[in-house]
Design a protein around this nucleic acid. Structure first.
Lengths: 229, 229
DNA sequence: ACTTGTTTGAAACAACTGTTTTATACCCGT
DNA sequence: ACGGGTATAAAACAGTTGTTTCAAACAAGT
């Protein structure tokens, strides 16, 4: 008994189910729901029965692809922990928080911008974002919510008690997410418009640009506040 | 002879071809290429033969939908003319250029953000942006190039001779496009994350926020330049 | 009224769709 | 060696796909 797999216990091959997720994710990313089970299975090198055997039906394979995309992104590009930040307003703690924000934005940018490690995941998740399907909406919501709440908290810490406000945090967060997402959403757009410089596609570079911009805005707000007081 | 239409010359109905584009665009936006000719024709209230008669095949109907989306966006939300701007560096001309930039960004934001007048066009074009199909890539390229070149030129004018540089223009333009696109790309994302304030969805409000941000950055650069010189 | 070219709907078409069935190979504990 | 659970492939399944055919309806010119 037991659920040990059948014929691949001694070799280092990947299981048919994993191969199917990998291959199906790529094809779903390209063609959406117009992808057929036959071309998926042909690409995975298995019979058409495999999908229904391992996943029940085509739709559940699709859901698993999106879930796998979320899981892999969180695993490959973890976001720095912001749960227990030391209090204090001295310069050193402030600098530390700003560097933490920078690391956070880099992780965010790597998730949406890195092409080498996760080719189809971004496209698939983007499809769900612009035309959400009911089956994965909740799952995708948890994925985004978790990291967003961390970002929101971190922004509050960077802003400090004086500046911190929900409205300002939301404005900055919107900016950050918009420009991070553009790493992927604007891919073909940049190609068309000739916006592609070598560093324009590098997640870390874009993240730093965003971070500098955010910190500059905060700095300007702080200056204005001091002047008016 | 002649190509006068058959049965709708005296009534103010729309032709079957136009009805098909309108209905097909909406369904294509929802389901992509998985949309079927039968559900399109059922929604348009005509027989399945209509698509092949008026457009040749399903694929060419899809291309026409994207083209129609581009055309209507340009018509509904025209971008201000920036071809013949008066020279000069006095305060009044500078203010005028900044207001022109604001109008430009508002038009951009209305294109991607207005839901009432163009419900499916944005989704359809976004689909093409994240997963371009060969048949419409060129058409879409022309659409974006035309307005982008105007924006690039306008940014150069706003920057002025001292600050103006291709790299800086590109950086600002990337920011503008990213945040404008987020009006649509981040729609469901904002809903999930609770970023939706009443004004957060209003194109004009977002455009003004972007414009202020851009002008502030330029202003900061100008100050730094004066200090260092 | 008759012809001409245009537009439409119902039916038919072959090809393809997702899924199920059936039979065979495989590994593992006994 | 053998039986039981697991995995796979080939074939068959009913339903749907995009497209075509064909006859009829229609408006306009003569």
């Amino acid at each position: 008994m037991g659920k040990r797999s059948g014929r691949l216990s001694q070799a280092s091959e990947v299981s048919t189910a994993e191969r199917l997720i990998e291959v199906a994710g790529e094809i779903f990313a390209q063609k959406g729901n117009a992808a057929t089970v036959r071309e998926i299975c042909a690409a995975a090198g298995c019979s058409v029965a495999a999908i229904n055997y391992h996943f029940g039906d085509k739709q559940r394979l699709y859901v698993r692809c999106v879930e796998a995309a979320c899981e892999r992104k969180q695993r490959l590009f973890p976001v720095p922990n912001v749960d227990s930040l030391p209090g204090g307003t001295d310069l050193q703690t402030r600098k530390h928080r700003e560097e933490l924000l920078r690391e956070f934005l880099r992780a965010l940018a790597r998730r949406t911008g890195s092409e080498a490690t996760a080719p189809w995941q971004n496209t698939l998740m983007l499809r769900e974002i612009i035309a959400p399907s009911e089956q994965v909406a909740e799952r995708l919501g948890e994925y985004f919510k978790a990291d967003f709440q961390r970002l929101d908290r971190l922004l509050g810490e960077v802003l400090g008690e004086v500046l911190n406000s929900p409205a300002l945090r939301r404005s900055l967060a919107t900016q950050i997410i918009a420009r991070s997402m553009f790493l992927r959403t604007g891919k073909s757009l940049r190609a068309i418009l000739g916006l592609d410089t070598p560093e324009n596609e590098i997640p870390e570079h874009v993240a730093d640009e965003i971070c500098d911009s955010i910190l500059n805005q905060i700095s300007a707000l702080r200056t204005n506040m001091k002047i008016s007081s």
